[in-house]
Design a binder for these strands. Structure first.
Lengths: 151, 151
DNA sequence: TTAAGTGCAAAAGCTTTGCGGGTAG
DNA sequence: CTACCCGCAAAGCTTTTGCACTTAA
């Protein structure tokens, strides 16, 4: 994420902490900074490693707890992923995913046409739709090349 | 899943086992049957419980291993889910999801208009798209009712 | 000052692995 | 017959919890 966007996001977070009386601690700032720097849907552990490199002493537990706090605040999100590890996503704006069926890798893409999809009516289910995202499921380049090798 | 569809699926599985020389064991049949009977993206553990009720003696390990085998064969899929537990899905045809941002619940929906979405061009990324699915992210009925209570 | 947050250690899930015995083809 | 599969027990990861100490407001 570019420096300017990141700075804006950090300021928004700080403002939100003040307005919601969530304590603005050193750890929370560092953890959010690390999350904003990681693309590709980092796990809590990857965020922990990044934080640990920059400022040793922050505990793994705090990283786990803080990421959940940030999700509840709406500052980051959890992203659906086929795997037994929670994935976080610092991108909060609408975007879409390529999902490899073979290696479970998830790649971000942007596509204006997909952003403009009409929202189907789900009022009969009582579900309030806030955001529409598309998954393109298939086989990624690496897996395709590997498959061709074998044949 | 209705009896007829299930029977067709079981027969297709058996045929695939023969053609790919995958051993057709008692356990594999029972585990696939249980998975086909479970909606709502069962975890391996839920499949295990269902199998255990019907035919005690099948081990949890075998359920974990077999579900992975079925995924590799393309008989079932893993479905992306925001949580630290793998979710399987017996539905292999295109369908879409409502994802609740508050409780992480994932609800299946069918929508012909969404099925017909144009496939964006991903050839520059070397990604081969096989299927397009949509996530409608928002708040489910139960969480909305709970929120209103609080206010 | 004090309620909220943190670190540590330990517990609690979920999933995988190694291995001896069993079985489908 | 024999390569593949199963069950068991144990290990390996990821995530959560309880509690005493620290700190932002």
């Amino acid at each position: 994420m570019d420096r300017e966007t990141k700075q804006t996001r950090m300021q928004a977070f700080e403002a939100q902490c003040r307005s919601q009386s969530v304590r603005l601690t050193f750890q929370r700032r560092v953890i959010l900074e690390a999350a904003l720097d990681l693309d590709n849907h980092p796990t809590a552990d990857r965020v922990f490693e990044t934080v640990a490199k920059r400022t040793p002493g922050v505990s793994r537990t705090t990283v786990y707890r803080t990421l959940e706090t940030l999700v509840r605040m709406g500052v980051i999100t959890k992203t659906p992923h086929p795997s037994s590890v929670v994935r976080y996503d610092p991108r909060v704006e609408t975007h879409h995913h390529l999902i490899c069926q073979r290696c479970d890798d998830v790649i971000d893409i942007s596509d204006a046409r997909l952003d403009a999809l009409p929202v189907p009516d789900t009022s009969d289910l009582g579900f309030e739709v806030l955001d529409v995202r598309v998954q393109l499921r298939g086989i990624c380049r690496r897996c395709r090349e590997r498959k061709e090798e074998r044949s």
